[in-house]
């Protein structure tokens, strides 16, 4: 890993790690949060998708939504980590994207919002 020693303001020496790995985790978490919202919303609009997501009958479509969410989140995390492993990225842009995705996750899991379209 690309590391260096850099003094910080309170006089201690801490290892400076590129922000890429952290940015990858943050953006992937945003993607994961949005994924459950998108799947919840889309399956409410589409009975066909709801059927496809029924991976395990006792749980119904929620089994597919949660499984796909975990896969999307982990794949995004792995992919972004590989790309940004040693990079210093524009953290502000990553932050904005992650927080917007988090907001999408909250909005699209809120049933009264679905019922505006169903």
């Amino acid at each position: 890993m690309n590391t260096s020693q850099k003094p910080v303001e309170f006089g201690k020496i801490v290892e400076t790690i590129p922000n890429g790995p952290g940015a990858a985790a943050i953006l992937a978490a945003g993607i994961g949060c949005a994924a459950i919202g998108v799947l919840a919303f889309a399956s409410e609009l589409s009975p066909g998708l709801r059927g496809l997501l029924n991976f395990y009958n006792p749980v119904g479509p929620l089994s597919g939504k949660t499984t796909v969410t975990i896969i999307v989140w982990l794949v995004a995390w792995y992919g972004l980590s590989r790309i940004w492993q040693r990079e210093t990225v524009n953290m502000r842009a990553v932050n904005v994207a992650a927080l917007v995705l988090l907001g999408i996750g909250f909005l699209l899991t809120f049933p009264p919002f679905w019922y505006l379209f169903v």
Binding site: V14, E15, I17, N19, G22, A23, I26, M91, V94, N95
Partner: peptide, 17 residues
Amino acid sequence: MKYGRAIIQHRNMRISV
């Protein structure tokens, strides 16, 4: 856990956390 106290150098990262 990855950044520990070094997170102080990454303002936007700690906002997200």
